[in-house]
Design a protein around this nucleic acid. Structure first.
Length: 332
DNA sequence: AATTAGCCCTGATTGC
DNA sequence: TGCAATCAGGGCTAAT
């Protein structure tokens, strides 16, 4: 399941091989993955034909190609989405949904072989769309811009781009991404404000970590891994956590994602945009996720699995004790 | 306004 | 053997 590290690996691969290419033609093989493109599949294809990729940018789990038309090709991998660069004529993958035929390319790719960018998605929670790009003042929720706590120059940009980790001149986002907060690897993340917002939530800390409007890029896997490293149960009320505890937790989120990113960066095929969110190298490094009944890597206690929002949470019963039921603070 | 439940999807696996 | 239930889960929408 692609979370921040996996999406960043894809973004980097696309930036390397897509920048400077022209999209010649587009086949939409299944309507669902382009459902977010309001004008329909035909318009989706027509909007892309003839445009060239200027840059590839990411925010949280969204990524997009900036096009010379001024628009963006927005992508989300959902649960099972992949973006693969293939040679034209290579056999279609089983769940191939969208095909983009490419021409041209960066230096080093000019071997005369025509390529395609393929969107493959079994479950089709992900998708593609062509959108506008709109300026955004900062990463605060809509209507709360300009509080003075964050100045313009430090607030603008913050998407991960192929040219570096920050944007200087253009702080342009696709409208569907406007509500997405920065991630823990973003140098422009306002960490102090994030800690305050997390601690203000009337919910469990794991739910807060998964809320993309607070901090982006974290999914079920890395939430569980970071909580284990912090020796903290995900049901702990966010409000009851001390400031240092939240800072430590975010440090663990950052550390586990950095390690995963480093391992995901080992690509075996230069033209394969590695989207192995499910079978990446990092899987062997997981401490608790998917390891029900297996020994905790810290203390040996069998890993526990609990229901959580119609899915699962994995934790160590000993390292991460469940919080005691707490009387409502207002009643005391 | 903030928070939460339900829905969307398909294929592999499990249960009867 | 065959069919149905279960699970995977990010993001969006509706409900509270």
């Amino acid at each position: 399941m692609p979370e921040l590290p996996e999406v960043e690996v894809v973004r980097a691969g696309l930036a390397r091989w897509m920048t400077g290419t022209r999209i010649e033609s587009v086949d939409v093989l299944h309507p669902r993955p382009v459902r977010r493109h309001q004008a329909g599949a035909a318009d989706f294809a027509a909007s892309l034909a003839g445009t060239s990729v200027v840059d590839v940018v990411r925010r949280g789990k969204f990524l997009w190609c900036e096009l010379d038309s001024g628009q963006a090709l927005l992508a989300h991998l959902g649960m099972s989405g992949q973006l693969l660069l293939r040679s034209q004529g290579a056999p279609d993958e089983r769940h191939l949904r969208v095909r983009l035929r490419l021409a041209g390319g960066p230096d080093g790719a000019a071997d005369g072989v025509a390529r395609e960018l393929r969107f493959i998605d079994q479950r089709m929670f992900g998708g593609l769309a062509v959108t506008s790009l709109v300026p955004t003042p900062d990463d605060l929720p809509a209507g709360r811009g300009g509080t003075g706590a964050v100045n313009w120059t430090s607030a603008v940009g913050g998407m991960t781009r192929s040219t570096g980790m920050t944007a200087s001149s253009s702080a342009l986002l696709p409208p569907p991404v406007l509500h997405v907060a920065r991630d823990v690897l973003d140098p422009l993340l306002h960490e102090k404000a994030l800690v305050a917002r997390l601690r203000a939530r009337h919910t469990a800390i794991k739910r807060a970590l998964l809320d993309q409007t607070l901090v982006s890029g974290i999914g079920n896997i890395y939430a569980d891994e970071a909580l284990w490293r912090a020796r903290m149960h995900g049901e702990r009320p966010a409000q009851a956590l001390t400031r240092p505890a939240v800072v430590r937790l975010l440090g663990h989120v950052r550390a586990v994602m950095t390690q995963a990113l480093a391992q995901g960066g080992t690509s075996f095929d230069a033209l394969y945009v590695n989207v192995n969110g499910e079978s990446g190298y990092f899987e062997r490094s997981l401490a608790v996720y998917g390891r029900e009944g297996l020994p905790c890597r810290a203390c040996g206690t069998p890993v526990r699995r609990e229901a959580f929002m119609n899915r699962s949470s994995f934790s160590c019963p000993r390292c991460q004790p469940r919080p005691r039921p707490r009387r409502d603070a207002r009643l005391r």
